[in-house]
């Protein structure tokens, strides 16, 4: 991966890859959504089970995006790679977006299940805290004017968050069992019957590709913006 860390090479490579990535994302979404709609309703949850196909992949990407951001931050911090800094910076709003989607679809799913939009369920609560981690990261980036300094400060914050995430997850799980006992989402695995697995899997891949497509577009935009800015600065002095 580091071999492509040169912004110029990244621009060339991403230019070639991007159309394919867009196409694959569109096709997978079409297939996944079709399957999600046509799959027979669940005997317990009825039609509402279909929310799962948009909720679970969003939650998965929300977590993966944080992992990606933390990894890029680590590389940016240790190897001083500007591209890694940009990748981490641009992954954050996407991660926040997918976290928000997971929260919204989760509470929509919760409405027929629990009879209310919000329950301090273990999963939902950890995602709410994850959302705040993303917001804090984005806010820190925006608050520091110096780009290099902002990148390093945000990277340190991302790593603090990465170390803390398992602790947060564990404490929230502990807390929900203390206050309300078992919850519905606790273990998705055994509840899901085989007919649902394929659409879920395809949707998960589609969401992942969507994340990387958007990420690459955002990184390209940021690189171009920086070039424009430094060109303008160079000509003025």
């Amino acid at each position: 991966m580091l071999a492509y860390a040169n912004p110029q090479r990244f621009m060339e490579l991403s230019h070639r890859v991007l159309p394919w990535l867009c196409g694959a994302t569109a096709v997978l979404f079409a297939v996944g959504l079709y399957l999600s709609v046509t799959v027979p309703p669940d005997y317990q949850q009825g039609e509402t089970v279909r929310i799962m196909f948009v909720h679970v992949p969003a939650a998965w990407v929300a977590m993966m995006a944080y992992g990606f951001m933390a990894l890029a931050s680590l590389i940016g911090l240790v190897n001083r790679h500007p591209l890694a800094d940009v990748a981490a910076k641009e992954a954050a709003p996407l991660g926040a977006l997918f976290t928000a989607m997971a929260l919204i679809t989760g509470s929509l799913w919760g409405r027929p299940m629990w009879g209310t939009y919000w329950v301090w369920d273990g999963r939902l609560t950890s995602f709410l805290l994850l959302f705040f981690l993303y917001l804090g990261y984005i806010a820190l980036w925006n608050a520091i004017e110096n780009e290099v300094r902002a990148a390093r400060a945000a990277a340190v914050l991302a790593l603090i968050g990465a170390v803390n995430l398992p602790i947060i997850e564990f404490s929230v799980q502990w807390w929900t069992t203390l206050h309300q006992g078992e919850s519905i989402f606790r273990s998705g695995g055994p509840l899901i019957s085989a007919v649902f697995l394929w659409p879920l899997f395809i949707m998960a891949v589609a969401y992942t590709l969507l994340f990387f497509t958007l990420l690459i577009v955002r990184i390209r935009t940021e690189i171009l913006e920086r070039r424009t800015r430094s060109a303008a600065l160079g000509s003025s002095s």
């Binding site: 804090g136 603090i160 968050g161 404490s171 929230v172």
Partner: peptide
């Protein structure tokens, strides 16, 4: 900015 940065990190301590 501090409360926003610290809220998720301090949740386990409060819990």
């Amino acid at each position: 900015l501090l409360p926003l940065l610290l809220l998720p990190l301090l949740a386990p301590v409060v819990i």
